[in-house]
């Protein structure tokens, strides 16, 4: 299948043929057959070396809630110009139903020299009148200007900033992207949603809420030597929120050898009041003063994070504000 020319018309014809074949293969009595479902175009860009099966499973799991025409671009790296494609359908039979629901998948393999060709190939392959979401899983491409020229195709670009080794650079890069036309989503931020929600919920209690203006410190502890992007996010978000109620809290980011992986411990403290959140395996423990509470909080998978991000194809003011603050704080801390 190694070749260097792929025309959009060819791919579209193959898609049309695929539907005819799928219809013929399935049961054709009245009320059965296949149902085509599509609510967006999802372009997932990944390195060829990445676990194909794992990514395929994530995309498959997303389809029932976010049915999409998926274009999976696999980056094969340097070498001869290569551009090839294949199309297939992913179908599932809802429990108790006679009819399959199917989504279209296009897989494109591309080497670095052929990368510029994607800019002309991808737009005609997007489903009409529906949003295009670009999910960039390649650190190499994320680092390239305008994500290799692909950001302009999409309404929203989703990345996971943890794939970049340096969090300050990642934040600067994301902040620059957010100034462009496309909406930006970062799975490092998405993974904090449940944390942030629980922190917010604590202050639904009016007694605790009234203590917020007294807060003087936001302490974020993290695993490893350098603060990861999500630690910056958590710190910036907390400090920004406290500022809106008149609290001028100082942010401190500290490594903690007892923490592992992506774990964080967050503490908000004032003169006579403090609260903290800490992950313990699949639970989140919150402490407010002397009382503590525990809720289940499983480690978010790519599926869970993408599911949330695909549901937000509009401006996200809280994230945009936090990203700008986090990028600024990261620069000022390094200075």
């Amino acid at each position: 299948m190694s070749q260097s020319i792929v025309s959009p018309e060819t791919v579209l014809r193959e898609l049309a043929d695929l539907w005819v074949a799928t219809g013929k293969d399935g049961p054709n009595d009245a009320g059965a057959g296949v149902l085509k479902a599509c609510s967006m175009t999802l372009i997932a860009v990944a390195e060829a070396a990445e676990d194909t099966a794992g990514l395929g499973e994530t995309i498959a799991a997303l389809m029932p809630e976010h049915p999409a025409r998926t274009i999976l671009v696999r980056l094969s790296g340097p070498g001869e110009p290569t551009l090839s494609e294949r199309v297939y359908a992913q179908c599932w039979m809802p429990f108790g139903q006679r009819r399959q629901i199917c989504c279209e998948h296009i897989e494109i393999a591309v080497s670095d020299p052929s990368l510029p060709d994607l800019r002309s190939l991808l737009p005609p392959l997007a489903a009409s009148d529906l949003p295009v979401i670009l999910w960039c899983r390649s650190a190499r491409l994320f680092d390239a200007p305008d994500i290799g020229g692909l950001a302009g195709i999409a309404q929203k670009v989703i990345v996971d900033s943890t794939i970049l080794p340096d969090s300050r650079t990642a934040l600067a890069r994301l902040a620059a992207m957010a100034g462009g036309q496309a909406l930006v989503g970062d799975l490092s931020w998405t993974q904090l949603t449940r944390w942030r929600e629980i922190q917010s919920r604590i202050f639904e209690n009016r007694e605790y809420l009234t203590r917020l203006p007294e807060m003087t410190t936001v302490r974020v502890q993290f695993a490893g030597a350098q603060p990861p992007v999500h630690a910056w996010y958590m710190g910036a978000w907390s400090v920004d929120a406290l500022a809106t109620v008149g609290a001028r809290a100082r942010l401190s980011l500290e490594p903690d050898a007892a923490l592992a992986g992506r774990a964080l411990r967050v503490e908000l403290a004032g003169k006579d009041f403090s609260m903290s959140l800490e992950r313990q395996e699949d639970r989140l423990v919150t402490r407010v003063g002397d009382s503590s509470q525990c809720v289940s909080l499983s480690q978010p998978t790519d599926y869970m994070l993408m599911r949330e991000e695909l549901g937000i194809v509009r401006r996200d003011p809280v994230y945009e504000r936090t990203l700008a603050s986090a990028a600024r704080l990261a620069v000022s801390f390094s200075a």
Partner: peptide, 17 residues
């Protein structure tokens, strides 16, 4: 005073105590 940590785009509806 309003809860400054609210994020209606991403959080579920809040319930009072």
């Amino acid at each position: 005073l309003e809860n400054p940590f609210q994020d209606p785009l991403r959080f579920e509806r809040r319930t009072p105590e």
